[in-house]
Amino acid sequence: MNTQFLLIQVFNGLVNGAFYALLSLGLAVIFGMLRIVNFMHGALYMLGAFVAFALGQILGLGFWPSLVLAPLLVALLGMALERTLLSRLYGLEPSYNLLLTFGLTLLTQDLVKQVMLSQYAVSSAPYTTPTVLTGVVNLGFVVFPKYRLFVIALALVVCLVTWFVIEKTRVGAIVRASTENPVVTRSLGIDVGKWVTGVFGVGVGLAGLAGVLAAPIYSVEPYMGAELIITTFAVVVIGGMGSILGSIVTGFAVGVLAAVGAAVYPPMANTLVFVLMAVVLLVRPTGLFGLPEGAR
């Protein structure tokens, strides 16, 4: 095995990691503020890809407008679901929420499947890479598809901006305060409920964005989120629930580790992430970046 091959694996790993990071970041932001595990996250990722596809079919919109519009639409849908359904389950056992979001996942998947079959007579559809990003880039030591480099770069920028907003701005201070102590924050004159809806919108918007980014690489398909979300949950467990920086770092790191590991020992390709998760759970049950529940 040569260095060239390993480097390509590292890049492939970063691409996967970009999706893990965007998705687990959204889950972390949502978990932090709402204390719920959004099982629907994978379906909303898929919906991002599907909305981009549908915008192209119906309105003739290309990749760039869809890259902005589709995540916004997913975010709006998410906010509507939070207001009408999720908000009714706050204060109840977490299993209610899991059931609701799991049910919504099945509903979304089958709805998209029906629409794709009845409207376009396909069960999966390719999505065209924007022209400026077709072809490859020669980095000197390795040749890599332009679009995939773009995915890595954009995901990194979006993750860092999200982290910056949460950790360094007034909006972030309100979000952190509401996460840590909603009762006191509300008593200080802040409408925590309004922020909860907004934060949920941002979290699922990130999933929608990942979906649009995924469309040109994988094809648009109703179950594209199902497998990815399982790995993403493993990433969340490894990184620690609710940690913003942890979810970003772990997302990229797990992507690279899994890709390189799979190259070194191919039979491990599908299990490596879960072996890693098991080891982390044994050594540090709260995850690499997580705090013990009492210390929050």
Binding site: R170, A173, R176, A177, T179, E180, N181, V184, T185
Partner: peptide, 8 residues
């Protein structure tokens, strides 16, 4: 709030 600085 411990996740906020004194200033925040």
């Amino acid at each position: 709030l411990s996740s906020l600085s004194v200033r925040e």
